[in-house]
Design a protein around this nucleic acid. Structure first.
Length: 396
RNA sequence: GGGGAGGUACCCAAGUGGCCAAAGGGGGCAGACUGUAAAUCUGUUGGCGAAGCCUUCGGAGGUUCAAAUCCUCCCCUCCCCA
């Protein structure tokens, strides 16, 4: 393919390419490029935000380049030695292996396995001696580290920054050296690390990597970036109706953003959708077709359709879902509060009481307001708690 | 090493002997409304089958009828000086 054409594809929907001329030169060589992407060894769900980056990586693969996935198992194994971060628990080799498996299952929904190389950074980081680490850290200064937004904010706010956090930045750079990355891909929040890597690579006599950053997708709350720790994410391997429902719960002002970043629609089609929104079409419909698209991408059109129908049934028509979890009860009579807790509709008796008092509980469609009610279990009964939780209670 | 300021629930943050299961905000949940799990408004937000009790304000002890609050020791963070 023509190099200009390649460049155009690569640049689509990116935020920044550092530097474009260098990328052009690399493309001109005609060799498959090594495109680095770092992933977390703790193996969380891959969400739509990360998928933005993965889909870009897939585009590289389709142009004949190689994806090099770096599993951060070194940092994973150490955990956070200061114990400050709960999100960095210590992982064993076993767990890491399991996580990689779990990861690849999700990743290959997007990437092409034939052009993917999985590497663990403990491969080279484990081998570093104290002398190596001193040498590596001599290549960078504290002042430059503190330029990083995240660090400078914390520093100004008198929040702690542990020294190993600074080191981790350097280790990431060292990853790039070890795998001889031509390009590194990631979200805009990673810019600093990626650029640091360029400097360090130069110090080690290596051609600096080209840095390509992608926009950060906002999460369900509409404000913060999508992330597991904010619990505002949509995982690509979540069940179809979860993905569908979560997209329906997006704030309306995020509709276009999601169309742009989570689908492969081109400018023409995006424009059409933008016009439909402007002309006053019910945003609900546009969200529904977005949800349909996304579910189709990661599951199938058939499942997307089913998820859509289910959504209409439950929320528009206030009906019942297709499948309702069954809860068997032995006793002839049971206290409603206890039943809600046992059936998993409430996490504690207190919460169950709250639900009842707030009018969130119905039994076979009838609202229940007495928290001391004893329910007789003679036949099958459908309990609904809140808008989305159901249980079918049957005598056993 | 010396001096100072701090550590409160999911997060931020008030409270400096009883009225404190702990203000306020964020987030979560529920209800109303609707176009939907949008937006907006209202309510609610430790646990235990009533009263009452139990656990929770960095940790361990102590004083007191009573401790987030006072005392002792310890751990952690930040600032200034060296």
């Amino acid at each position: 393919m023509d190099i200009k054409e390649q460049l155009k594809i690569i640049k689509r929907k990116t935020v920044e390419v550092i530097k474009e001329e260098e990328l052009l030169d690399l493309l001109k060589t005609g060799k498959p490029l090594r495109v680095k992407l770092g992933i977390d060894a703790s193996g969380p769900d891959i969400h739509l935000g990360f998928a933005v980056v993965l889909r870009k990586l897939r585009e590289f693969q389709d142009l004949g380049h190689k994806a090099v996935l770096i599993v951060g198992d070194f940092t994973g194994k150490i955990g956070d030695p200061s114990g400050r971060s709960k999100t960095r628990p210590q992982l064993t080799d076993e767990e890491i292996k399991k996580n990689i498996k779990k990861y690849s299952y999700q990743i290959f929904k997007i990437l092409n396995p034939d052009r993917t190389e999985f590497r663990c950074n403990s491969e080279w980081l484990d081998k570093l001696t104290a002398a190596d680490i001193v040498n590596l850290s001599s290549k960078y200064t504290v002042a430059r580290m503190l330029e990083r937004d995240d660090f400078s904010i914390r520093y100004k706010k008198n929040k702690p920054i542990a020294i190993h956090e600074l080191l981790y930045s350097l280790f990431q750079a060292y990853d790039s050296i070890s795998i001889k990355a031509d390009v590194e891909l990631g979200g805009t929040d990673q810019t600093f690390n990626f650029v640091t890597a360029r400097d360090i690579q130069r110090e080690f006599g290596q051609q600096p990597q080209v840095v390509i950053t992608m926009p950060l997708l906002e999460g369900l709350d509409g404000k913060l970036k999508m992330s597991k720790s904010y619990n505002n994410y949509i995982g690509i391997s979540e069940p179809p109706k979860e993905i569908y429902g979560k997209i329906m719960s997006l704030p309306d002002n995020l509709i276009m953003r999601y169309y742009e970043l989570t689908t492969d629609l081109g400018n023409g089609e995006l424009k059409k959708i933008r016009n439909r929104l402007k002309s006053g079409e019910n945003p609900r419909n546009l969200k529904a077709s977005l949800a349909y698209r996304v579910v189709s991408m990661y599951h199938s059109e058939k499942e997307a359709k089913a998820a859509g129908e289910e959504f209409t049934r439950i929320f528009k028509k206030k009906g019942l879902p297709e499948e309702i979890p069954i809860h068997k009860v032995k006793a002839k009579k049971i206290w409603i509060v206890k039943l809600l807790t046992e059936a998993g509709l409430a996490s504690s008796n207190s919460e169950a009481r709250r639900l009842i008092n707030q009018g969130g509980v119905t039994v076979d469609g009838g609202k229940l307001t007495d928290e001391s009610y004893e329910l007789e279990i003679k036949k099958e009964v459908i309990i609904k708690a809140g808008k989305r939780k159901f249980a079918k209670v049957i005598p056993s």
